[in-house]
Every structure is written in structure tokens, then in C-alpha cells.
């Protein structure tokens, strides 16, 4: 497929410059600029209402920026949202599987949406079932699966079309720590294959697993670095401390 690429930014998945979103007089996202490298695990960290979801919606092509611009997988978010949609995956905290469809039926449905042909659907389905060790659950209705399994399945389905970037919006809500650890293993495997993972979270311990994190306060980026570097800069024990230090300046109500 033909793809518009910028030679000097070829290793970058997301390039955002001065990205801003206003709703009337309220500025949800205020002039944020950042780059995300290919295969990177990039985390948006912030309190509720800090602008994480709005920023992510603009990157997914669901919401047009008021000013500034961004390219995702080489496409402009303002003008090429259709191409962006084909090259990204998305998973929300609700998992969004169809409960009264079987495991393989969910896979086929989502794969079909992204235009995979029958052979591709078959091979991707087998591959994912094997990777998740789900071979025996192929014909199980999704509603019969435990929550942690649903989460892993939802993630695998969100990358069934092997996108350049996958966006995860608070994907670990409500699952136990063991399931969260397994889920992270899955994320690492995905990033190793060169798929960029961008996620939002408000679990501070999870932020430590990201390659780099970007802390949003009142729609602005107040810090952007690797967890290790952030802890050093703010001489903190963990990311939770860093976050408390920075979020203290927040004006907006949570």
C-alpha cells in the first residue's frame, strides 16, 4: 500500500506539534507536542479530565484538532482520518467484545471490518488462539470467559489486522494484578514485533512498565521522559511520587 512518508521521520509513529482541542472556552488539550518512536510503549498519565482521552481521540481521527497538527503512521489527523483508521488498532476499558458471539466469531467479525480476506482471517485466528493458548476456547461464547481472558482476547483482536499503532484507553480497569502482569507480557510481545503501543492509564505502577511516559496536567504536558529518568529528575522513589509532585499544580477540578 502506498504510504506518504517523511524520510527524516521514518522511524517515528506519531508526531504531534502544538496539538490543541477547545470545546467553547474550555481547552481540553493545550498545545501539546511530542514524538513516539516505532515499537515504543508510550504512556499518557493523568488524572480524570486531564485531557488523555481527548488527546487520544484526536490521534485516532475521531476528533479534529482546533489547532496544531499531528501525523499518525505518516497520515495527517486533520485530513487523512480514513487512512489512519485503517492503520491503527483501538481497545477501550470496556473490552468491547460481543458477549453472545463465540471467540472465533468475534475474531472473524473484527478482521472482516479491517478488510482481511478469508485466508488471512484463518491464519491470524489460528495464530492468536495459539499465542493466547486458547485453542480449546475457539467455540466458547465470550460471555463464558473470565475477565482476564476477555481482556487478552480484546487486545489480540484490536491488533488482528497488524496495525502500525495500537491505542489502549485504560485497558486494565477492573482486572486482578496477575491478569495485569500477563497482559503486560502481551504488550511487550506486541511492541517487539514493531507495533507502537500508546496507552492511557491512571495506575501509577503500570506507568513504570512504559518506555516513556507523558504526564498531562490540565491539558498540558508537564513531564515527558522514561520512568527511570523522571524518578531521577524529581528525586522520587516511584512514578506515583513524581505524579503527586506535578499534579499538585492542577487547577482544574478532577
Amino acid at each position: 500500500m502506498y504510504k506518504e512518508t517523511h524520510t527524516h521521520e521514518e522511524h517515528l509513529s506519531i508526531v504531534a506539534q502544538g496539538l490543541t482541542k477547545r470545546f467553547g472556552s474550555f481547552t481540553a488539550v493545550d498545545n501539546i507536542s511530542f514524538n513516539v518512536k516505532k515499537g515504543e510503549i508510550f504512556g499518557f498519565l493523568g488524572a480524570n479530565g486531564a485531557g488523555k482521552t481527548t488527546a487520544m481521540k484526536m490521534l485516532c481521527g475521531l476528533s479534529k484538532p482546533t489547532s496544531g497538527n499531528a501525523t499518525v503512521a505518516g497520515f495527517d489527523v486533520s485530513t487523512q482520518s480514513e487512512q489512519i483508521k485503517k492503520n491503527i488498532g483501538y481497545m477501550s476499558q470496556k473490552f468491547a467484545l460481543y458477549e453472545d458471539l463465540k471467540v472465533w466469531e468475534n475474531m472473524r467479525l473484527y478482521a472482516g471490518i479491517y478488510g482481511l480476506n478469508d485466508n488471512e482471517i484463518k491464519s491470524r485466528t489460528d495464530e492468536i488462539l495459539q499465542q493466547l493458548d486458547f485453542q480449546n476456547e475457539r467455540n466458547t461464547l465470550v460471555k463464558a470467559l473470565p475477565l482476564g481472558w476477555k481482556q487478552k482476547l480484546a487486545f489480540s483482536i484490536s491488533i488482528i489486522h497488524q496495525p502500525d499503532i495500537v491505542f489502549l484507553d485504560e485497558p486494565t480497569g477492573g482486572v486482578d494484578p496477575a491478569a495485569r502482569r500477563q497482559f503486560w507480557e502481551l504488550i511487550y510481545q506486541t511492541a517487539d514485533k514493531g507495533i507502537t503501543v500508546t496507552r492511557t492509564t491512571h495506575y501509577m505502577d503500570e506507568a513504570e512498565y512504559c518506555n516513556r511516559i507523558c504526564i498531562l496536567v490540565d491539558g498540558k504536558i508537564v513531564a515527558l521522559d522514561s520512568p527511570k529518568q523522571l524518578k531521577e529528575t524529581y528525586s522520587a522513589q516511584n512514578i506515583d511520587e513524581v505524579f503527586r509532585l506535578l499534579a499538585r499544580k492542577a487547577i482544574r477540578n478532577q
Binding site: L62, K85, Y98, I113
Partner: peptide, 13 residues
């Protein structure tokens, strides 16, 4: 309610 609509809107559908 189940969050499927969000996924569908982000998809090329």
C-alpha cells in the same frame, strides 16, 4: 453501552 460503538467508530467502517 458495551463499548463496541467506540471501536466501530475508530475502525474504517
Amino acid at each position: 453501552e458495551m463499548g463496541n460503538m467506540e471501536i466501530l467508530l475508530v475502525s474504517p467502517l
